[in-house]
Design a protein around this nucleic acid. Structure first.
Length: 356
DNA sequence: GTCCAGCATG
DNA sequence: CATGCTGGAC
């Protein structure tokens, strides 16, 4: 009875699945790469990144031997950059600890940096056919609608109930197809808005559909809203032998955009007058009474992060190279042509493309 | 313009 | 339980 739902799901999947590159391989490395890229990311957005990534890093060793900067560069624009840094670290770990052979059991897979319960279950089932059921956003939605789960799925009790219900329909002897089938149904049919219930193979079993309450699920508790953050970036330009240079700043290990590059600047949690900011910046970076005024000011540019709503301003300032106070050697001078070699956030990428 | 989808970590 | 990114839907 319960396995019929699972079998129906698999039959539907085999007939309707999208042809995607990571579905045509058993290489655990390639499946791992695809799963990390697709964490918190839609296929439409991640596909081109995956294709470029595996051409440059076709094996664990290729990834392990690359520099972090280059790996981040291949990740530029995808967001959640810790995924790239963790995957790079894990590639080195596999290379040393397992002599380059991808671990083939759930616990070792899950011990890799950046691999949590979802990704470990996905790799274990898809690459090694081990009976671990995945729970991602799609599965939460499908299961909570199918069983009319009233407890919020983003709570411990909600997850326990989803897991329990999921395991009643899980097809243990075909975990790879079952897991991909339920996620594919969530992505293609049981969508967050405007789900296509009339096409759904599970609609006769679906509590939400039968009660005409599909939009009531999944139940979620709302999270804290983001705080405002004001960023003032200074584009310090100087001319040398007919070449245009600007200063980049390497971000540290703290807070957002770890280890990416941006411009030197100041940040505040509340509004600030532009001339105050410029004065403060000059005092900090130019100890010798620097009087040049900004040439161009761009902003405010809005940029939304998970827990911060950013308002960014970009201030262009012509300078004499030698006068900059370079704290901790965080600043590097690069030509405008060289800018493209450095990994940057989408906010910075957009500014460079439009203005430099 | 605002909101939401999509996992891992400390 | 708080934090990290971006794109697309609305």
């Amino acid at each position: 009875m319960t396995t019929k739902i699972g079998q129906d799901l698999i039959a539907w999947y085999k007939k309707n699945k999208r042809d995607l590159p990571w579905r045509n391989t058993n290489d655990p490395y390639l499946i791992w790469v695809s799963e990390i890229i697709l964490q918190q990311t839609r296929i439409d957005q991640g596909l081109s990144y995956y294709l470029r990534f595996v051409v440059r890093f076709p094996s664990i060793e290729d990834l392990a031997n690359a520099s972090e900067n280059e790996v981040l560069k291949y990740w530029q624009g995808l967001g959640y950059y810790s995924r790239a840094r963790n995957m790079h670290a894990s590639a080195k770990q596999i290379s040393e600890l397992y002599k380059g052979k991808f671990p083939d059991n759930y616990d070792q897979i899950k011990s890799l940096k950046g691999v949590g319960p979802y990704t470990a279950a996905a790799i274990a089932s898809i690459a090694f056919n081990l009976p671990h059921a995945v729970i991602d956003g799609n599965v939460n939605r499908v299961i909570s609608r199918l069983y009319g789960i009233e407890i919020a799925v983003n709570t411990n009790n909600g997850q326990k109930l989803v897991d329990e219900k999921l395991n009643t329909i899980f097809v243990r002897n075909d975990p790879a197809n079952f897991n991909q089938a339920i996620m594919e149904l969530g992505a293609m049919i049981c969508k967050p808005s405007s789900p296509e219930c009339n096409k759904c193979v599970l609609n006769v079993n679906c509590v939400a559909f039968q009660q005409n309450r599909v939009n009531d699920f999944p139940v979620k508790i709302k999270l804290k809203s983001p705080e405002l953050l004001y960023l003032f970036y200074f584009i310090l330009k100087y001319q040398n032998n007919s070449q245009q240079f600007v200063y980049l700043n390497k971000r540290g290990e703290n807070a957002i955009w770890k280890n990416l590059y941006d411009f030197p600047g100041l940040q505040f949690n509340s509004k600030k007058e532009m001339n105050e900011v410029v004065t403060e910046f000059k005092q900090k970076y130019f100890p010798n009474n620097f009087t040049q005024n900004p040439e161009k000011i761009t902003g405010p540019i809005k940029h939304q992060l998970t827990h911060k709503s950013i308002l960014a301003f970009f201030i262009e300032l012509k300078i004499d190279k030698l006068s900059v106070n370079n704290f901790d050697d965080k600043l590097i001078a690069v030509t405008v042509e060289e800018l493209q070699k450095y990994p940057v956030s989408k906010l910075i990428e957009n500014y460079i493309k439009a203005n430099l």
